[in-house]
Nucleic acid binder design. Structure first.
Lengths: 212, 212
DNA sequence: TCGTATCTTTACCAATTGGTAAAAAGCCAG
DNA sequence: CTGGCTTTTTACCAATTGGTAAAGATACGA
């Protein structure tokens, strides 16, 4: 996850950010992730973020141009991490294995990065007002490629015949559900997060679906 | 969907709300559904709701005690509609048929009530601050019952052996995805909502999963 | 048609929120 | 140890937001 902006006029190869700058920007982004993922963009306030980060509000605005800048920075920095599991699908690998491992990696993201998952969910729920371009340029090509790959596998008879795009949607939906709807899952699972059971269930689900 | 509150001191059997009252409360709730589902609770403003409803802000506060009252009323009124598909599962019916029809009914809700779906999604994403009780008293018993029913069916060998609760989660996740993440789906499906394809895909998915 | 109850508007708040100006305090190379 | 840079604080705004008071307009039964 690269840090960005602030001085960034063009490309001075110097160590462009001091130790303090790196530390405080990180604190702010971490606090903002917590607050934004919990309350959404408009529900979050700079004061909350400042308190969570242990800094004053004006001090935060010394490091970021504004509330929106923080939010956009978070989204940008997260994009790579978020798409990594899909990028790791190996066209040379065994199809069933690759898909099932992709499912497990996505599920693992719900365990490790629930805040990030909710941040994205919030953004998409509201129509992706600050992420439209990113979806077009970052996500769509990757999905198109992956869908094509899956279709190849299907044509070779190595996977059952299913619509690749809906397959991908269903994987996202079922795995991210445990992070995004965690509050509901907890009520219905008597406090547990359900992730362990989900791992086995989803393995069965996709194995049965995709076995030719 | 029952209307509620305003006069409601106890139980006068009179026609307690005038024509104007019913009409305006309905307008307000409809406008609020639009605005809340798009921007979340804190992101929505009374002015937006007022404009959308074609009323003045103070006039809205004549019909509802406040912003929160509108939100809670929406959530309450929606709960029945939302749980109806699960209530319609027939313990006497053919298991596979009942589950597959439940999936299709849920998918139909994403088509017909996307705003309602997003309203709930927003609420759950934020930790269900105004719905915790409802989940416990309304949703949980129904899910417990349905899970028990499915387990019976499995024990009878009429469905494949899967965890009923994770099955239910996966049905919710995959069907609601098309409403809640519609913005993303649209980008990846070149403008379509994907619902027609989803119907066939999900039928295949759950048929293969549940066939003993 | 008139009076009363219902409904709507106008004119306001007080609190919150994103953001700024500028002084004060740290930090650190020479 | 000092002068110039970075960082932080203090003291503010202007706009927005949820909400209220009370006057004014409307509907409607008697």
């Amino acid at each position: 996850m690269p840090t960005s902006s602030i001085p960034a006029p063009s490309d001075t190869p110097q160590p462009r950010a001091s130790r303090i700058q790196r530390r405080n920007r990180k604190r702010i982004l971490d606090a903002a992730l917590e607050v934004f993922s919990q309350h959404g963009y408009r529900g979050a306030t700079l004061d909350q973020i400042a308190t969570e980060a242990g800094l004053s509000k004006p001090n935060i605005l010394y490091y970021f141009a504004g509330k929106e800048d923080i939010h956009v920075t978070l989204l940008n920095d997260l994009m790579d991490t978020w798409l990594a599991p899909m990028r790791q699908i190996d066209p040379q690998g065994d199809p069933m294995n690759e898909i099932l491992r992709y499912v497990q990696r996505k599920l693992e993201m719900s365990r490790e990065f629930p805040r990030e998952s909710r941040l994205f969910a919030n953004e998409i729920l509201q129509g992706a007002p600050r992420m439209g371009p990113h979806l077009q340029t970052g996500l769509k090509p990757l999905v198109d490629d992956t869908a094509a790959l899956i279709e190849t596998w299907i044509a070779q008879g190595r996977l059952a015949r299913v619509d690749p795009r809906h397959l991908i949607f269903s994987i996202w939906a079922t795995t991210q559900h445990y992070a995004d709807f965690g509050a509901q899952v907890q009520v219905l699972m008597d406090g547990g997060d359900g992730l362990d059971g989900a791992s086995a269930f989803l393995d069965t689900l996709y194995r049965r679906l995709l076995t030719p």
